[in-house]
């Protein structure tokens, strides 16, 4: 079982990493990064680091990637793509349906085969006094015969973090986070005096594309205006000629 989990999660991790490097759109790269982080979290569970798996998902996928997406949207780097185009007709509805279907089927299989999702066999979960109350104290039997409880991991990490060995590093970490917050506020603050935007001397590929499109549109409009003006002027002259006659 551990081997199956390892290879599936490894495929997810490597595919996500390649996606981050190869995809052009930064939003897609950020979503690939989420895939990689989830894969690494699965590896953490496989290695019995239960607390860090949860922290990985919450901090990385929940905070850092969202921060990335905020900055991408704020800077408008994703402007190059037209979102409304749908390459295959009806693919969005199909994607939503497929996602829901996979989730339902996966949950059903996980519950039916018992114990692999929650760590509690279904027959014991029925007699659980409170939901999850028994589950966290439930010892999971590993393939090599040893047992481990998820709660034990959290308790041990907390105990060693606040032990005399690591407590100084923990305090320094708090200081580091404070410095980071203050630094971010100072850096991102809008300065009082207005400065001029430095003109672009080496525009990127996206900018060139946009510029050419816009200028061509403007040129077309200008030509149309010229034509209409010529027509109206010829009309006017013809009118004036008729009046003169």
């Amino acid at each position: 079982m551990e081997a199956v989990t390892f290879f599936i999660a490894a495929a997810v991790v490597l595919a996500g990493g390649c996606g981050v490097v190869l995809l052009k759109n930064p939003v897609h790269a950020a979503l690939s990064l989420v895939g990689t982080l989830f894969g690494v979290a699965i590896h953490f569970i496989n290695l019995q680091a239960y607390f860090l798996a949860a922290v990985q998902v919450i901090v990385y996928a929940g905070a850092i990637v969202i921060l990335f997406l905020f900055v991408i949207m704020l800077l408008g780097v994703d402007r190059a793509e037209n979102i409304r185009t749908e390459p295959i007709i009806g693919q969005r509805h199909f994607a939503i349906l497929a996602l829901v279907g996979f989730l339902v089927i996966g949950t059903l299989i996980g519950v039916a085969t018992g114990g692999e999702v929650t760590g509690v066999p279904p027959e014991e979960a029925l007699y659980s006094p409170s939901e999850g109350g028994l589950a966290i104290e439930q010892e999971t039997k590993l393939s090599d015969g040893s047992t481990i409880a998820p709660e034990e991991n959290i308790r041990e990490i907390g105990r060693s973090l606040f032990s005399t060995r690591y407590v100084f590093a923990l305090e320094i970490t708090a200081l580091l986070l404070t410095i980071a917050v203050v630094g971010a506020v100072v850096l991102a603050r809008r300065p009082r005096e207005k400065f001029e935007t430095i003109p672009e001397y080496e525009p990127s590929v996206f900018l060139q594309k946009d510029d050419s499109d816009e200028t061509s549109k403007v040129e077309e409009e200008v030509q149309e205006i010229d034509i209409t003006e010529q027509e109206s002027s010829t009309d006017a002259t013809s009118d004036s000629e008729t009046v003169n006659e």
Partner: peptide
């Protein structure tokens, strides 16, 4: 490492 990564990303 997680904490340092978060601080690094913010800055």
């Amino acid at each position: 490492v997680l904490v340092v990564a978060a601080a690094e990303v913010v800055i």
